[in-house]
């Protein structure tokens, strides 16, 4: 990863929102700038470096989602926000393992951990394998729209469609195919229902 000299938070947020190759440089900058602080905290509080890596990556997953969904606007610095998320996630783990007594309620804006923590490894892998069956073009379309949160104009440009309407039609077809895959697999539908309730 080439070094990125600017660590201006606004610029990092803009890069993460862009969904372009710039996104990776922003992720790398955030990683290299803030991992040591989080690692220090976790290691001072009963964790090792691997646990610190896991909790930091969980924190970045949540931060990424909040930025994409416009829930983080830079009211505090990225470092402070990420540290709060990671601290919260680590304390939650300690509590779950009986290493810490329950104290204050979870801060609402930080209470949504990574989605993949809400399910066991086997169902998660099976669901990902099912998503893979969707086909490259549809996977890309749905990821850009639902996960990256890009608008249809940008998606049309990115995926080579002539205009937004054509891209929208494609997205509709992709959703239909995904629905068929889910409906064709009762177990997957049950797992997703559980995920919904978690």
């Amino acid at each position: 990863m080439r070094p990125v000299h600017s660590t201006n938070d606004e610029e990092l947020i803009a890069r993460l929102r862009s969904g372009t190759v710039e996104e990776n440089t922003a992720l790398a900058t955030i990683y290299h700038t803030h991992f040591p602080t989080v690692a220090g905290y976790v290691q001072r509080n009963s964790g090792d470096r691997d646990a610190a890596r896991d909790v930091f990556q969980d924190g970045v997953v949540v931060l990424y989602r909040h930025i994409k969904q416009g829930r983080f606007h830079g009211e505090s610095s990225i470092g402070t926000y990420l540290y709060s998320i990671c601290r919260f996630l680590w304390l939650k783990q300690l509590r779950a393992h009986g290493r810490l007594a329950p104290t204050e309620p979870d801060p609402e804006h930080l209470s949504d951990g990574p989605m993949d923590h809400a399910m066991e490894d086997a169902p998660r892998k099976a669901l990902l394998a099912m998503f893979d069956r969707l086909g490259e073009a549809c996977r890309q379309m749905l990821m850009l729209s639902f996960y990256e949160g890009l608008d249809m104009h940008t998606i049309a440009q990115r995926t080579g469609f002539k205009d937004e309407q054509n891209a929208r039609n494609k997205k509709y077809k992709c959703l239909k195919s995904l629905r068929e895959l889910i409906d064709g697999d009762p177990e997957a539908a049950r797992w997703l229902e559980e995920l919904r309730g978690s």
Binding site: L27, H32, Q57, V60, M115, L142
Partner: peptide, 23 residues
Amino acid sequence: REMWQLVQLAGEAQLRRRLMDIH
């Protein structure tokens, strides 16, 4: 929402791979 959640799951998996690469 089931479809949306499945895409979020896949997106997280992809992001985690990128983070592991950086790490």
